[in-house]
Amino acid sequence: MDQLAAMATFVRAVDAGSLSAAARAIPSSLTSVSRQISALELHFGTRLLLRTTRQLALTEDGRIFYERARSVLGEMKEIEEALAGNRREPSGRLRVSAPALMGRLLIAPLLGDFLRTFPSLSVDLLLVDRNVDLIEEDVHLALRVGRVADSQLVMRKLGEVQMIHCASPDYLARRGEPQTPSDLAQHDCLVFSDAPGVATWRFGRDAGSGQRVRISGRLWVNSLDALATAADSGTGIVRVPSWQVERQLAEGRLRRLLREHEPAPAPLHALYQPSRLGSAKIRAFVDFLVERWRGSDPLGR
């Protein structure tokens, strides 16, 4: 049995919804399609599909095999593209994940030019404030801020993100300006979090000896946009990426605080699987970001 071919047939059958539809799409005979799936079930010693005359249903083992098979087949396609290298224009589908605010403000505005530059490419942009599983979620490239724990991934540093603290002049006129991080205990802090409670803000350039301050926030929101808006309206002190509030700072609507106590910048990496090291479309996207950000420096490095 050609396991890779049988795997592709299995995925095609599940996607098509029936063995006969898969046979027409490949194209192949219905007998051949059925034989390949039966051979897979015999090889793995488990039932993968529940067959009826009109439709298919995945067993629990079949669902696990389907997700893994899709990933393997996707990697095989990436290998083909890598071996082709620069011999052809980047093409196909590129699935990218990024933090929600960064994706909306810094990535999405560039996609029009990127797609015009590479007309054979299409992009799926997934905006989520969590670390995605590149294999399970079929993501080709992830942009991630901070330390990367998964050493199995290939990393390319794109820049650094500086977190800053700021408040409106109106708030500071009413409550005074904090001179040290400890002064924040006497202030209304606006905290980015999914779960209200007690937060910790780190200060100081040295991560090992820097100061950590417990913050009991007056407002907890899982949106940096909403927090910046609240700070702009005089609600309290917010901690946000410098590039997010660049305009408000320039216009005087927000004032930067505790600058000498700010934490060290956090690295921004592009991450992808080692099997996609030579992917032309990943390389094209990362190089495009590096080139576009080099002059304007949107990360506020």
Rank of each mutant, 00 (worst) to 15 (best):
D150W: 08
S122K: 12
S168I: 10
S91D: 03
D232F: 00
T229A: 13
Q3C: 00
V145C: 09
R292V: 13
V161L: 09
R93K: 14
A23F: 02
L153Q: 03
P265A: 02
V132C: 12
T117M: 12
E89T: 02
S275R: 09
R70D: 00
F44S: 00
G278Y: 01
E136K: 15
S18P: 09
A21H: 09
S242T: 14
V33A: 10
T59Q: 00
A264G: 12
V132N: 09
G176M: 10
F285C: 08
D129W: 04
L271Q: 08
D61H: 13
Q3A: 06
E75F: 01
R174D: 12
T53L: 07
R294N: 14
S193D: 12
D15N: 14
L49H: 07
S91V: 03
V33W: 06
P263E: 15
L254E: 11
G92V: 07
G45H: 07
P274L: 00
R47A: 15
K157L: 10
W201H: 11
D287N: 15
I37P: 02
N86L: 10
S182H: 14
W201Y: 15
E260N: 10
E75D: 13
G234A: 04
L184S: 07
V238C: 11
T235W: 05
A185S: 14
V238S: 06
G45Q: 03
Q55F: 13
R130A: 09
A13Y: 03
R130P: 04
V245R: 10
A207Y: 08
L172P: 06
W293F: 14
D225I: 02
T200L: 08
T52V: 01
L106N: 01
R218S: 14
F44R: 07
G112N: 12
V14A: 00
L110T: 06
H140I: 01
P241E: 05
A264K: 05
A228S: 11
A230F: 00
G204A: 11
L111P: 12
L126P: 03
V145D: 02
R156H: 03
L127Y: 06
A173I: 10
P265G: 03
W243K: 13
I37M: 04
K77M: 10
E136G: 11
V148Q: 13
L50I: 15
G217K: 01
F203V: 05
L105D: 01
R256K: 15
L172D: 12
A250P: 02
T229W: 05
R144Q: 15
L153G: 08
P267M: 06
R247N: 11
M155H: 14
A21M: 06
S34P: 03
G210T: 06
A270R: 02
G159H: 09
